[in-house]
């Protein structure tokens, strides 16, 4: 046993918490080192002195002052609010109902906004800013499908063969004659 090992065991020795073998080892060390024994006795004496230190008492006005403060705390608006909101009320995952509602609303809002921000295309490529795509795009604009216009629709309707009132319509008399001629051959 060396000095440090001895010092580590002093309290356990004084408080009778050492196994017998260790206790004897320590006593043998003290026999061989009287200054170690002095140190141990000094600590034992210190512990006794500390136990004898007088109890420090509160002043005579202590309780009156305390009760005044307690009354103040009782009547404080925030204290009343605290009592009203927490005492006897349930909590959800550690939150009071108000906080739980607010937190839930925030989470839902976050999810909804997040879904709005997600691009709707299935293309997995990274979406570049419009300024970059405009500069680098090699696809001619003409190749893109031309959207229908109202005029085109009108034109198609004008040339429809089923249109009985169209402008290219032959007169009924001439038309009937041609049919007759074919039939005569």
């Amino acid at each position: 046993m060396n000095r440090y090992q001895f010092e580590d065991l002093i309290s356990d020795y004084i408080e009778n918490k050492l196994p017998i073998a260790k206790r004897k080892e320590l006593e043998a060390f003290m026999e061989a080192n009287p200054e170690a024994k002095d140190q141990l006795e000094s600590i034992r004496s210190l512990m006794k002195s500390m136990k004898k230190l007088p109890e420090v008492r509160t002043s005579d006005q202590f309780t009156a002052k305390l009760m005044k403060r307690v009354e103040f705390e009782k009547n404080r608006p925030s204290a009343k609010k605290y009592v009203a909101t927490t005492v006897g009320s349930k909590t959800y995952f550690g939150f009071t109902p108000i906080y739980a509602t607010v937190m839930t609303a925030l989470v839902v809002a976050f999810v909804v906004v997040g879904m709005q921000l997600v691009p709707k295309t299935n293309n997995n490529s990274t979406v570049l800013p419009t300024s970059i795509t405009a500069e680098t795009s090699t696809i001619p604009k003409s190749t893109s499908p031309k959207p229908y216009q109202n005029d085109d629709i009108m034109l198609a309707e004008d040339h429809d063969s089923t249109d009985v009132d169209g402008p290219a319509r032959v007169k009924s008399g001439q038309f009937d004659d041609k049919i007759k001629l074919v039939g005569n051959k």
């Binding site: 580590d8 002093i10 309290s11 140190q39 600590i43 210190l46 512990m47």
Partner: peptide, 11 residues
């Protein structure tokens, strides 16, 4: 350990 060290320091 802390109590033992504290007593040694006080001593």
């Amino acid at each position: 350990s802390r109590i033992n060290r504290a007593r040694l320091q006080l001593q």
